[in-house]
């Protein structure tokens, strides 16, 4: 996947987690919501790992021993080219 395709997939999985997170705040024992959260968390984790390895970190703490501080490399999210 290209950087933008992979980022879009991450945004989609992340959004599923945001939605389930808010729902679980008011329904903390809902089995379906917990299962849904677990499913999308696994998806997000694997997509994020692929993104970090290929394109660099989305949070500074995803540093993986590189000899360059990649945190500043990718376009900042408000630039149009970060969203294409």
């Amino acid at each position: 996947m290209s950087r933008s395709e992979l980022l879009r997939s991450i945004q989609i999985a992340d959004f599923a987690l945001v939605e389930a997170n808010l729902f679980l705040d008011s329904h903390p024992d809902d089995a379906n919501a917990l299962q849904y959260y677990g499913k999308y968390k696994a998806m997000l984790d694997s997509l994020t790992e692929e993104y970090v390895d290929k394109y660099g970190p989305l949070t500074a703490r995803q540093y993986k021993g590189w000899d360059h501080w990649k945190w500043i490399d990718n376009p900042y999210p408000w630039f149009p080219e970060a969203n294409r």
Binding site: L7, R8, I10, Q11, D14, F15, V18, P57, L58, T59, A60, R61, W71, N74, Y76, P77, W78, P80, A82, N83, R84
Partner: peptide, 15 residues
């Protein structure tokens, strides 16, 4: 808080 270097939803405006 920890910053994530992405928007919650894409913004790509041409005009």
């Amino acid at each position: 808080w920890i910053y994530e270097k992405k928007l919650q939803y894409p913004v790509n405006i041409k005009t």
